[in-house]
Design a protein around this nucleic acid. Sequence first.
DNA 1: CGCGTTTACGTCGTTCGTAACGATA
DNA 2: TATCGTTACGAACGACGTAAACGCG
Lengths: 331, 331
Amino acid sequence: MTLAQLRYLIAIADSGLNITLAAGRVHATQPGLSKQLRQLEDELGFQLFVRKGKSLDAITHAGEQVIERARVILAEATNIRSIAANLRNESRGELRIATTHTQARFALPAAIAALNASHPQVSVHLEPTRDADVLARLEAGQVDLAIISSTGAAPTSGIALPAYYWQRVIVTPSGHALAGRARPPSLTELAALPLISYDSSLRPESSLRQAFEAVGLTPQIAMTAGDADLIKTYVRAGMGVGILAEMAVRDDDADLDALPADHLFAPCTTWIVLRRDSVLREYTLAFIEFFAPHLGRREVARLMAGDQTNAAWANVPHWHGRHAPSRIQVA
Amino acid sequence: MTLAQLRYLIAIADSGLNITLAAGRVHATQPGLSKQLRQLEDELGFQLFVRKGKSLDAITHAGEQVIERARVILAEATNIRSIAANLRNESRGELRIATTHTQARFALPAAIAALNASHPQVSVHLEPTRDADVLARLEAGQVDLAIISSTGAAPTSGIALPAYYWQRVIVTPSGHALAGRARPPSLTELAALPLISYDSSLRPESSLRQAFEAVGLTPQIAMTAGDADLIKTYVRAGMGVGILAEMAVRDDDADLDALPADHLFAPCTTWIVLRRDSVLREYTLAFIEFFAPHLGRREVARLMAGDQTNAAWANVPHWHGRHAPSRIQVA
DNA sequence: CGCGTTTACGTCGTTCGTAACGATA
DNA sequence: TATCGTTACGAACGACGTAAACGCG
């Protein structure tokens, strides 16, 4: 058993059991991986994968267990290299972030630009990931940190640092009846309109859905999209009223009206999630502080060490606090 | 960085920074380790050890961190091999146990004999370890399980399974005044006598000491020894009254009188402690069940998974329950 | 016939042990 | 001078890549 064999094993598992693809990803040749996999299986004395003909068809039960352990080994090996890189003030490196479209499009650019200015040698990889898969990618070690939102409690896997709070807003075409009035819209009024929101609002545990159901209403979701830009496009086209994150409404949306909806829906928290026991590169800490200024090196170190005292929770800002005045109308 | 390099690194750290000794322990040559260590340091770009002349003098701060990570890596590599060995019903193996003298001498022999009968290919290594170091050796991966006693709460490091309860007994030479009476001895009476007990009873947090101090008495410890046999020897010699674990009093101590002391001292619990996230060989589970029959495969699996429901706690036996009638007089 | 895996083979790099050297107490 | 670590060297092993063969859809 060697570190290379374990690395190949993980690459194969993460490439959908396609050895050729995995070989490319680890910058090696396909016969090399094939042979090393065989040798590992020989040494362990059982199959890690189920073969169908010559191809790999599935992961063995024992294979799953081994892969789980191998991930820990590779993560710790990376940690050791991070310790070394930090110690020698190595400025190059990469930062892999798994997050959702809204974060990547509206919340992250400022922080990434700042990081790029202060650490030009760091290449940032934004990995677009479906909501449900973000934490899995983090746990699998495919990314260095995850940025994800939730209503209420922090994600249970990994270590979650609260970055900021945000609210939903109601978006209509400019001049829509809803926007002109003195009184903010109610849930009942919204339920009568065709709504456009994120894909995740179709899930029964969606906080949007739950807000309606709590008062016995069923929203009429005319359309969903994974992407705030798409939602805005279809709102412009008159397909319905958009409900989306306040970060997604910007100055260049002059042809849209945005109404606050914090009286209707519970606030959301955006979390930075880190792997437990991971050693962070210096630039990762810098990025975290750019993104969430209340999370300085000291606070992150304390939270990573498992300190549950909520000192960091006290200063979590609302999204507004850190950016140019929003276009959201105050009713 | 290779697994071998990390193994050598740990061996050196665990051999008191003596490379020659470490080389012997990993069955390799001294120049080999020396070179691999240098290569690892070159790759990481910093010194893992502080040199004094040619010798290793201390571990670097960064070295400590790397060693910590390397231990995790090696432990997980061992776990993978354990998965494999279990899967192929490998009957050979070794079981390394760190424990105190009393356990090794009086509590473990039956379980080890039973294990040897059912798994003759398993070689058991009893590692005599000072009380305070038992858990450190477990965490360092030098042993597979630790067996340790405490009054009250479970050890915090690792996963502690309660094996049995026990009490202290008062041991006197046969015919001693204390033993002949109708009433059991009081703390006040004991405090007036020269006592012989374990080394650990000198520590201020010792539960023996605390029992006396709770009622404002200071015991007169005439002598301590690490070893119940030594204590009994000096009790026989008339040097004083022994206070020791009930397991240490056996049928062949006919020339000693033993009085129960559970009305004076709080009960103790003996724990089996396992590393978190360790994969146990089948024979380790067998051993645990021999030693503590209420800890079957299912219970251990549940506790290892982090289940905090105290189902296993309900059936923890007292030492008496599992052995031939004790010689301890019931007052 | 294309895609993906395995087999075969030659080269290169690396590790390891032996032996000699060096430093330190 | 004994102990421990480093350097030097040669042999052997093992990994890797290229090229060709094999199976499968």
